[in-house]
Design a protein around this nucleic acid. Structure first.
Lengths: 339, 339
DNA sequence: GGTTAGCACTCAAAAGGTTAAAGTGCTAAC
DNA sequence: GTTAGCACTTTAACCTTTTGAGTGCTAACC
């Protein structure tokens, strides 16, 4: 069911114009601004056909046409210009932010969220995932009080997490060091999953400390389940005319300000570095009604770092959003490679 | 300029009623619901006098009275019933949350923010402060790669922070251990401020590592400046009728979703455990127009843990908010004391 | 057969007008 | 000092009219 070239062109014009203006697009608009060589009556019959096919709709009989979800989907995959370039000042801005702040993965995630939100003018979400397949670099206990230690988990992407573990009150520093040596040997080159599955064999003299190792494993399991969640620009949605209604704002904010819901939203199946676009809420029950989500998962050296997403009205500047997310992804990857 | 008892009573009724209903209070309302023994005409003249004194105003001539900021201020300090008790289920809820999650200070802060927001139905903000007067328990470097180490800072309130420090490539493990011993000795019982001011005397053989110590001090100074910021229930504001207007919502959200602004808001001068109420935006230029902020700073063993605040419309249920904040503060303190 | 001018038709948004209800302030009497 | 009574004010709700934008259809045109 291929659309004729002219239909595609007209559909693209309608979507482009509507994304920019938020005003239903009329046949006259199209002929005066874009297609000056054909008459509005011709366009009108094409629009009517596109409506028949489900790509457009009218808010009311005497209004212009508005794209449907189906139109946005086609727009994203086929119609829109995909190699949109960011301006030099935007590129410079991105670079400057990441040069400054790249100390640890959390900072990078936070900065990325902020940068994306700033440049796109949409709410930006991110979750940092801790995967069972993350490779461990070291696991170490660090005594705090006589009977408790801080657990440090280091993975190859330098993400790490902290947790308190109880120690037997009579454990000596030497014994703790020995424990750390055993932990270091155990985790050598293993993924978290592999570490947790390892049957640990302790010397008899160490059996009394077995529960420490079990606690470490528990902490690792907990670590996998946890994920940090970052949000920026929750207020950005208000600049868009479709959110003039308090009820809609409420619906949007109740999702975006709830970390659990954000996590649900972002924990898609996307295993590729490719950009994922979900238009409209149909089929995706987590996305607020009438919203779209553009997301990407960033990797460094095979390890999943986290997922980013821009969420906004269906009438979203997909070109810009895709360009920004793509570029930030490249920058992050190059930063993490060089360290 | 003492108000007569009757004026106070009437003012209290107006504020109470308006907080509950958000509808301008009329003289008839007052006489039929609260003061059945006097006539509405009498109340009317009192209301008129209260308006003259700046405690009340009218949205328009044929409307009831609405409290002014001045009225809310008086209400908070004098008029409102202060020993409002939480219900048993509310108390149980608070207890259950904190029993479950008290692993580290960040978790406690997050839970507290959530609990307060949930129980009050207002947006809740919190910042965890790192004070120069925090007492150090230990400072330790933990090698990650040959040339970089993770810095762990432990203070007596168990808050801690992490940061990477560069090591000379040829530094041995023994030298690192020695460095840690020196750090441990140096920080013994000192506050962060004292630690940073200490003139460190190194043995000749260790002078080559002096920059490590300087970096640690820098990290500590950075640590003091940093502060985490938690927000919950940004969407709660939308339930209140005064926020039916998108412009007002925008103003509110632009403050509440901006971590820098939240920090400004919360970094008041409050050194006491007392509850601080800022009514209306006049004089406090960070608070969004027409908002009030009820905040408290929590301490544990003399160390400032962080500041909490509930922000919402001037027409806020101060009784409830104060009661919740007070109670959560007590719970946190008792938790942190028993560990 | 596609394209176009012309025109009747539809609908929403804006503007204007009317009414009803709520609440006050004032006055005169108690 | 308190109260009943009444005139006055103002908003909110409702209805009506007008205006303008945009379409769909038809008949003519190439």
């Amino acid at each position: 069911m291929g659309l004729s070239d002219r239909k595609k062109k007209i559909l693209q014009i309608v979507v482009d114009d509507y994304i920019q203006t938020a005003v239903p697009v009329s046949s006259k608009q199209i002929t005066s601004k874009y297609l000056t060589d054909i008459s509005s009556a011709t366009v009108r019959s094409e629009l009517s056909a596109l409506e028949e096919l489900g790509y457009l709709s009218q808010p009311h009989t005497s209004a212009g046409r508005v794209p449907s979800s189906k139109a946005y989907k086609l727009y994203v995959t086929e119609l829109m210009q995909k190699d949109k370039k960011l301006t030099q000042s935007e590129l410079d801005y991105i670079k400057s932010v990441f040069l400054q702040k790249a100390d640890n993965i959390e900072t990078v995630l936070k900065s990325a969220t902020k940068v994306i939100s700033e440049l796109t003018s949409y709410t930006t979400l991110a979750v940092s995932s801790h995967e069972a397949s993350d490779r461990l670099v070291n696991v170490k206990l660090f005594r705090v009080k006589q009977d408790s230690a801080l657990l440090i988990i280091l993975t190859d992407t330098k993400i790490f997490k902290d947790n308190f573990i109880e120690l037997p009150a009579d454990m000596t520093d030497d014994q703790l060091e020995e424990t750390n040596n055993i932990l270091a040997k155990f985790c050598q080159g293993k993924t978290i999953e592999e570490f947790c599955d390892t049957e640990l064999e302790l010397e008899d003299s160490f059996l009394g400390f077995k529960h420490i190792f079990l606690n470490v494993i528990n902490a690792l399991k907990e670590y996998i389940e946890q994920s940090e969640c970052y949000t920026e620009g929750e207020d950005k949605i208000l600049s868009h005319p479709e959110y003039a209604d308090v009820v809609k704002i409420k619906e949007f904010l109740s999702v975006v300000t709830d970390k659990d819901k954000v996590f649900d939203l972002m924990s898609g199946e996307d295993k590729e570095l490719k950009i994922n676009v979900k238009v409209g809420s149909e089929g995706y029950d987590n996305i607020p009604d009438g919203c779209s989500l553009v997301s990407a998962t960033y990797f460094a050296g095979g390890t999943k770092l986290g997922t980013y997403g821009v969420i906004g009205p269906e009438r979203m500047d997909y070109q810009k959003v895709v360009a920004v997310i793509e570029h930030v992804g490249q920058i992050i990857e190059s930063i993490l490679k060089n360290r």
